[in-house]
Write a protein that binds this DNA or RNA. Sequence first.
DNA 1: TGCATCTGCTAAAACCATTTAGCAGGGATG
DNA 2: CATCCCTGCTAAATGGTTTTAGCAGATGCA
Lengths: 340, 340
Amino acid sequence: MVAKKRVTLADVARLAGLSSTAASMILTGRPDTRLSAEAHARVHAAAASLGYRPNVAARALRTDKSRSIAFISDYVATTRFASGLIRGALAAADAAGHVMLVLETGGEPAREVQAVQAALDRQVDGIIFAAMRAREVFVPDLAIPAPVVMLNGTSARFPTSVLPDEYAGGRLAVELLVEAGAAQSSVLLGHNAEEERGLFRSESIARRLAGIRDAMAEHGLEFEAELSCWNWEPGHGYELVRKLLETRRPRSILCLNDRLAFGAYQAIGEAGLAIPAGIGLVSFDNDELASYLRPGLTTIGLPHEQMGREAVRLLLETSRPESETLVPMPLLRRGSLPAG
Amino acid sequence: MVAKKRVTLADVARLAGLSSTAASMILTGRPDTRLSAEAHARVHAAAASLGYRPNVAARALRTDKSRSIAFISDYVATTRFASGLIRGALAAADAAGHVMLVLETGGEPAREVQAVQAALDRQVDGIIFAAMRAREVFVPDLAIPAPVVMLNGTSARFPTSVLPDEYAGGRLAVELLVEAGAAQSSVLLGHNAEEERGLFRSESIARRLAGIRDAMAEHGLEFEAELSCWNWEPGHGYELVRKLLETRRPRSILCLNDRLAFGAYQAIGEAGLAIPAGIGLVSFDNDELASYLRPGLTTIGLPHEQMGREAVRLLLETSRPESETLVPMPLLRRGSLPAG
DNA sequence: TGCATCTGCTAAAACCATTTAGCAGGGATG
DNA sequence: CATCCCTGCTAAATGGTTTTAGCAGATGCA
């Protein structure tokens, strides 16, 4: 057996009895070439019969396009949501005939520089910078001769960004409470006004809270209490709500994420209260948890998959909006809120 | 401003006053070249001062190596574990100076073919086929002139694979029950002997159960009951355990995954029993859930991150074992089992 | 002196596709 | 009849690197 070489454009051209110039123009589908219909047919037939696949490296060398994009993130999977961003981006890239390089930097500047260079070295057609914590994202101070889209974060250098519409999401949470008739006696779990003056760890959360506060104000409402903690883990939600229930019995809790809500469920169960009859909950993120709880947790989801898709769409477009694209947050109605 | 062109090897050579042949040999670190120490110094200095970066496409064209690998999976993130595989692989690839293309096929043969071709077109140095459900994995019937490693799955065509050591994990679960003094009266949650005769959805689970059954037999033990369901979701665990507790009070439950265990927690809580005093649990997967529960769930984890890392290591090695590499499953001791 | 060997380096080919410039032949136009 | 344009195609340059083959001069040895 002779080792089979890769089939090249020249092979196709030879079989079709034409020059490789002709074969190239036909296969790349150039518009205003003057090659005959018969030439077209012969080249396509030859390519098909040989199973010709263009050499991407050769093409990239000549054209500086590689039909691939880079997805550079600080942490891919440290947060359980990240995979949604990747999955959406992957699907959109695939649909557009592109391939996606995934790079992780751990948030370290040195690795960020390396990642960008690795991507640039491979002539990517564009770069997505994805952040797990949406705030001003560090982008290495390198010349980047390719389109850039910020995903779930922002950057002064690159104004095109894709973010969840947290403000609208915040408002929606309050509307749900009102609709359920549980807003007059409600507790906010996660943050309090005191701390909002300081630095937010995340721009997203600032907007979420702005939406919540604006909607409350419009309804002339105030939270009965605001419980704050730094890490929004179930344990913290549990402790805060357990203490709360020693002295008060609010009609509802607005949880700033599902893990806090999970902790709240545990404390509420131990206090012998029923959800939603005794106390109603609404939350954010649509963590996998939310559907496991009994009753299911009504939550306003992070639209990560759609955001990833949107980012790729913008990246591949010829002109990009120099602004934020806000993706609506979906409402997952489950059983943790009393029916209006 | 004149548009800056990319700096090429020729530029470096010119600045160093040498031929590009010399520059190439020096920068690629060829062993037995006879270029002078001074030439080495000059070339390195020139490259550094110009900020030279080799053009990967040009290099790939010439050498057929691209310093990139492909990670092709059926589903990236549909299961919450997948990201661990990716993260581990990414870290190992990065450490080896490689970049990783991620491709998703949804398990559809047509997309699998496309994914493999897309990878091959880009001259990847190797391919990892990752499966979320570990059984015989479909691999497109294409000539693949690159190393292949199967990750969390197996294939007749490609014998190098990386799998969790489920058999040992299964045995360990039983040992834990025995050590806790809770094995004499135990219930298996997830499968029963009846169904094991049929087709397993997953080879992993078959091995896990084999480990469990062997260890039980060695201790001369049998399960008091075996509860079976097709989907291992919290809801099913809840229902099965709720019914169980109407008639029996076992000392422990061996859950085949953490979501079932989560359902079991809910049912146990409702029945007014305490964990671990009244009933002990041990489980598998180390789902994020496991640490949120109160008390924490003792579970035998899927070592996905390490598996991903291992797969890349094998892929990049010059010779690969034609066999399975089993990665040990870590024990996460938390509070759901009584102390010995 | 003659010949082989070593040292330090370079010219040019090769990898494969895209693209620019242009050629031969035929028909239309003035 | 000379000129121009149109049709259908091709030769050759280009992109940036690696690699093969080989050159000129110096040194070693007889």
